[in-house]
Simulated scan of single mutants.
Amino acid sequence: MLLPSPIHQVSFRGKSLFVKRDDLIDPFVSGNKWRKLKYILQDAAEKNKKHLITFGGAYSNHLLAIAAATAKNHLKATAFVRGEEVSNPMLTLCKLFGMQLRFIDRQSYQHKEALFEEHYANDSNVYFVNEGGASKEALIGCAEIIEELKEGFDHIFCAAGTGTTAAGLLKGINKLQLQTTLHVIPVLKGGEFISDEIAMYESDLNKLQLHTDYHFGGYAKTTPELINFIKDFTSSTGILLDPIYTSKMCYAIFDLIEKGIIKKDAKVLMLHTGGIFGILGKIDQFS
Rank of each mutant, 00 (worst) to 15 (best):
A69L: 03
D105V: 05
L269Y: 03
K282S: 12
N61L: 14
T234F: 05
M200D: 13
Q179S: 15
S203P: 02
K263F: 04
K259N: 10
G274T: 04
S30T: 08
E147V: 03
A166R: 02
N73P: 00
D23G: 00
N61S: 11
H211R: 09
I276G: 15
Q285V: 01
S195L: 08
S16Y: 04
L37Q: 01
L188Y: 14
F18E: 06
L188E: 13
K189S: 15
G274C: 11
R13C: 06
G133Q: 05
L3I: 02
F55I: 05
N122K: 15
S236T: 09
K231C: 03
I239M: 13
L208Q: 02
Y127L: 00
H62K: 01
L178H: 10
E192A: 07
Q9I: 00
S203M: 13
D22W: 09
A143P: 08
V184M: 11
S11A: 14
A134N: 03
Q177A: 06
F18T: 02
L178T: 07
K50M: 06
E144K: 13
R13V: 04
R102S: 03
Y214H: 14
T164S: 15
H62F: 10
I66P: 05
I198P: 13
I239E: 07
L169Y: 12
P6Q: 08
M1I: 06
K112F: 12
V268T: 02
A114Q: 15
E84T: 09
K136H: 15
Q209S: 13
I239K: 02
F128S: 05
E117K: 14
L64Y: 11
N228Y: 07
I53S: 00
K189T: 13
Q110V: 13
F128C: 12
F157P: 03
S108W: 04
G133W: 04
T222W: 06
F116W: 03
I146T: 00
G98Y: 07
H62W: 14
G217D: 10
T165M: 04
G56A: 13
D232S: 12
A159R: 03
E137S: 14
L115K: 14
L96R: 15
K20Q: 13
S60G: 03
K47C: 02
L241Y: 01
K112S: 00
A143Y: 12
S30C: 08
S235Q: 14
E84N: 11
A167V: 01
I156D: 08
Y120L: 09
L96P: 03
L63K: 08
H211L: 09
F286G: 06
M99S: 12
T54W: 05
L24I: 07
F193G: 12
V19Y: 10
E192L: 07
I173Y: 08
